[in-house]
């Protein structure tokens, strides 16, 4: 199964280097991001590679080739989900190396180091983003899903924070107070745990849905 995930790297060597440059770009341009620098950079890095792999599958009609092999369709789907974390892992390692190089070279950049909370935020961010994109990609194929995905991409990056702001400010005093009290009184580890469980739940639903949709596709 990992074989198929590695295949997604092999077919897009050029995009891979481009995606690496993107991490450097994030380090330079988004100095103000602080703690969010790692999740933002890795989410963008993963996005470029995941979409690149789907695009090349589509261009080469790889679904026909892959599904004529002795492979279950569920495995084709699962390997794509795995590839997200493979890409993220590579991205994080690249980020650490770049961070190290920048420190050695004494570049006057404020690069936020990799820490556990950064990794956790990255996990939540890439999981939710791809959990939303994947069922569409598996149902429609890259070309048809591209437009919808583009809209979702902007919604995801700009809309969601806006939506949360509006939702929070729009809440009745009691509700808002309740949420603040909840966040204040619940220990951090509990909130983290809830966040992980929620993410895993969304991911599972997405994975099951993708497998169902892909198993019904005609190629």
């Amino acid at each position: 199964m990992l074989n198929l995930a590695f295949k997604d790297l092999l077919i897009q060597k050029k995009s891979f280097f481009f995606a690496l440059l993107y991490i450097v770009f994030f380090m330079f341009v988004f100095q103000s991001l602080q703690q969010a620098m790692l999740p933002a950079a890795i989410t963008a890095f993963t996005y470029i590679l995941v979409m690149g792999a789907f695009a090349l599958d589509d261009k080469n009609k790889a679904d026909i080739m892959l599904n004529s092999l002795p492979v279950r369709r569920s495995m084709v789907v699962t390997s794509k989900y795995l590839s997200v974390y493979l890409f993220a892992l590579i991205g994080i390692v690249a980020y650490m190396i770049l961070h190290y190089i920048a420190r050695l070279a004494k570049v006057s950049l404020d690069i936020y180091p990799v820490d556990l909370s950064g990794i956790l935020s990255t996990f939540v961010s890439i999981s939710i983003m791809n959990a939303i994109f994947f069922p569409l990609l598996f149902k429609l194929g890259y070309t048809k899903a591209k437009v919808i995905n583009l809209v979702l991409f902007f919604v995801f990056f700009f809309g969601v924070p806006e939506l949360i702001n509006t939702a929070v400010s729009g809440m009745e005093g009691e509700w808002q107070g309740g949420l603040v009290t909840f966040l204040k009184t619940t220990p951090d580890y509990m909130i983290t745990l809830l966040l992980i469980i929620g993410t895993l739940l969304i991911l599972s639903v997405s994975w099951l849905l993708s497998m169902k949709l892909y198993s019904k596709r005609d190629f």
Partner: peptide
Amino acid sequence: KNKIGFVLDENHYYDEV
């Protein structure tokens, strides 16, 4: 499928490798 050899009219392999 382990026992089938399959050949198509057009290429469906990855151009890039």
